[in-house]
């Protein structure tokens, strides 16, 4: 058994763990009594989805799938900052 088929098998075992975690994040995002709770859950979901995308690239044996990950992370951060700004200031440009 060479290293690559080992990696593929290993990633197949990992995938259900990530999917379970996604579902739990989504329960919190839907329940979340206040908006910051939902934002926090979606934020963590996005970061983990970024990691998930890069891990899946090993499974699909295609390196071209990865650049989307950093974009997802960057915009999740922007969503955080925007919701924080919404609560903190009167005007979003200040």
């Amino acid at each position: 058994m060479n290293l690559e088929s080992l990696a593929t098998t290993y990633v197949i075992i990992i995938i259900p763990v990530f999917l379970t975690a996604f579902i739990i994040y989504i329960i919190r995002a839907v329940k979340g009594p206040s908006v910051p709770d939902s934002v926090l859950a979606i934020d963590a979901l996005s970061y983990d989805a970024a990691a998930f995308m890069i891990i899946l690239a090993i499974y699909f044996k295609s390196p071209f799938l990865i650049p989307g990950a950093i974009i997802l992370a960057i915009w999740a951060y922007a969503l955080d900052i925007f919701v924080a700004k919404y609560y903190e200031k009167k005007e979003l440009g200040e």
Partner: peptide, 27 residues
Amino acid sequence: LTPGGGFQGGATLAVAPLLAIAALSRY
């Protein structure tokens, strides 16, 4: 050569002014 292109790069670049407006103010 790899996935991406002008529009994708531009949409990524747009986060810079957006974050600057939110975190550092539009002034």
